[in-house]
């Protein structure tokens, strides 16, 4: 019995190992909480700054989202504050949607080629090349846009060459590899027997691709497109280098225009913290942030709707 109690005591002593465990658990948790705090910090900081245009400077939402003249600190001819963000908002949406519309057929076609038609060549050449292109810095895309796309547009359509069209083209090439590689992933996730069953039923290769494979992969492809759009919407420098940076409502695709990001990057250095000019820029940043959250939500929504039933 006495030996028994001695053993009990030994077994109940809190070991060094137990202390390690507590320490390690807390340490890794605090790293995670730090990231959480950063995310909250970003949202709170930018929301506070961005909202002060409306609460501190008393700009109305209508003037901000509906106005078409952007020159914060001055007044429009009709006597309103010139904080109309509509040109940039329209610019951002235009380049994003156009880039997605152009990219999507190319991306899907390429992805189908890589997985369904010539998987060998796909894996050998296209896969590594798309991976490399996903990683190419956006300034490089911007530079090529500036030295190839803008002159091309200028020669073909006249004008300066800067504008929505050039922005769209640069973004198209930029998000193409992203959409391709994500689409490839979702096509690969379609079980093999789907295809075999379809072919066995006498469907042609194309019918199998169109009616079976693409249909089964639709949620994944949609996610890929939304990711591409999110990237396009948030892209700053590549667009800023080719769009012309005129905060005007775009009248056509080849006149200088601007996006939220281009005005932000160009303007942030030239305004004084706390001024209306500066606050208005933060409001643009807030719009960017909200849109990014929206894209996130969209991805979640698609994911929930289309989770693969196995």
């Amino acid at each position: 019995m006495q030996q028994n109690q001695k053993l009990a005591k030994q077994l109940m002593k809190k070991s060094k190992t137990a202390r390690y465990e507590r320490f390690g658990h807390l340490l890794s948790l605090s790293a995670l909480l730090l990231i959480m705090a950063i995310v909250l910090g970003i949202i709170i900081f930018i929301a506070t700054k961005g909202l002060s245009t409306f609460f501190k400077d008393h700009i109305s939402l209508k003037d901000f989202f509906g106005g078409v003249i952007w020159n914060p600190g001055t007044q429009t001819p009709s006597g309103q504050q010139a904080v109309g963000a509509l040109p940039m908002i329209v610019g951002s949406f235009l380049v994003t949607i156009l880039a997605a519309v152009v990219s999507t057929p190319f991306a899907i076609g390429t992805a189908v080629y890589m997985t369904e038609i010539s998987p060998k060549r796909g894996a050998k050449i296209l896969q590594p090349v798309t991976e490399l292109l996903v990683g190419i810095p956006s300034v490089v895309y911007g530079f090529i846009g500036l030295s190839v796309v803008v002159p091309f547009v200028r020669h073909t359509f006249g004008g300066s060459g800067f504008g929505i069209l050039s922005g769209t083209f640069v973004l198209f090439v930029m998000i193409l590899p992203t959409i391709v590689s994500m689409t490839v992933d979702s096509l690969k996730a379609v079980p093999k027997y789907y295809r075999q069953a379809s072919l066995a039923l006498g469907a042609t290769k194309w019918q199998t691709i169109w009616k079976v494979v693409l249909r089964a992969a639709t949620p994944g492809i949609l996610t890929a497109i939304v990711f591409g759009m999110a990237r396009a919407f948030g892209e700053a420098l590549a667009v800023q280098m080719v769009i012309g940076n005129a905060a005007l409502m775009p009248h056509n695709l080849v006149s200088p225009a601007s996006t939220l990001t281009s005005v932000l990057t160009a303007g942030m250095g030239n305004t004084v913290m706390g001024s209306l000019q500066n606050d208005a820029l933060w409001s643009l940043a807030l719009v960017l942030l909200v849109m990014s959250l929206f894209f996130n939500l969209l991805v979640h929504f698609i994911g929930r709707k289309g989770a693969f039933k196995k």
């Binding site: 910090g41 970003i42 919407f233 420098l237 933060w282 996130n296 979640h300």
Partner: peptide, 20 residues
């Protein structure tokens, strides 16, 4: 919640991160 937060951070435009 934390996973969502990390996803949000990863999809934030880098210009927004820069402004923060």
């Amino acid at each position: 919640t934390i996973r969502t937060a990390i996803e949000i951070l990863s999809s934030l435009p880098s210009v927004v991160v820069g402004l923060f």
